[in-house]
Nucleic acid binder design. Structure first.
Lengths: 122, 122
DNA sequence: CGATAACTGAGAATCGAGTATCATCTCTCC
DNA sequence: GGAGAGATGATACTCGATTCTCAGTTATCG
């Protein structure tokens, strides 16, 4: 039952991305398709509810979204274009940082700097 | 020349904290001193301009501030009380995550979970 | 004691992100 | 074709964070 055509468009754009996208970022990638911002938000919200998307919060505020079916990974945030890239792999020694009595359930590692494209663009 | 009494109050409260504080968080710690929210923002802004404070962005949005004269460290963010705690120490193996062509200038590690106090409070 | 400049608190104004509303459109099923 | 449910885009709206404004204070210096 092919319904929610625009929602599919939104989810496909997210699948094609190389990192989590914010609603606005996603919307701008869909300019030309006529998809409205409200629809982007609706598609994201539903995607999360239905378990196929995951919301990700990185430094700097905004919430970004990405498909849930990706392995454990972290992010590289380009300070020039503000895009977040997935980084597969993880790091060692996190447990030793946790103070006594604290319970760690999750961790987030964000590398900051300049991405390939921005570095070459000057 | 003792001027800016309230600004000193603000900076001292920040020095006494065990982690970076948001403007609101700081303000609520100063309730009773009569310091206004606008003054907190002014003091923070000036502190950053004059190089004694540093603004820190963690997951979830808000900007937090802390004195600049602290060693390299990371944070534990309690998902219950939303307070951020400084964690001294660092991790290994970050460089290996950086993709070819990308330039890493900084990194941020955030552990999430429950702090001592909240874990005991239930 | 004035004069002046910096500081302050309260509340208004602004800004952006996200949400709600509503008239319209598009399927699906008969 | 017609009815009904769900989907859509534009836009108004809400909400919280931050900044601006302004009148009243306070410190400094003669």
């Amino acid at each position: 039952m092919q319904r929610a055509k625009q929602q599919l468009t939104v989810l496909q754009a997210l699948d094609a991305a190389d990192g989590p996208l914010s609603a606005r970022e996603l919307w701008s990638r869909l300019s030309g398709t006529g998809v409205g911002l409200a629809t982007v938000y609706r598609a994201l919200q539903r995607g999360v509810e239905e378990g196929m998307l995951e919301s990700v919060e990185l430094l700097g505020g905004g919430v970004r979204y990405e498909p849930r079916n990706r392995e454990h990974h972290h992010y590289f945030l380009c300070s020039s274009c503000d895009h977040a890239f997935d980084l597969f792999g993880c790091v060692e020694g996190l447990e030793s940082l946790v103070p006594d009595g604290f319970q760690m359930t999750r961790h987030e590692v964000v590398l900051l700097g300049t991405c390939d494209a921005c570095a070459n663009a000057g």
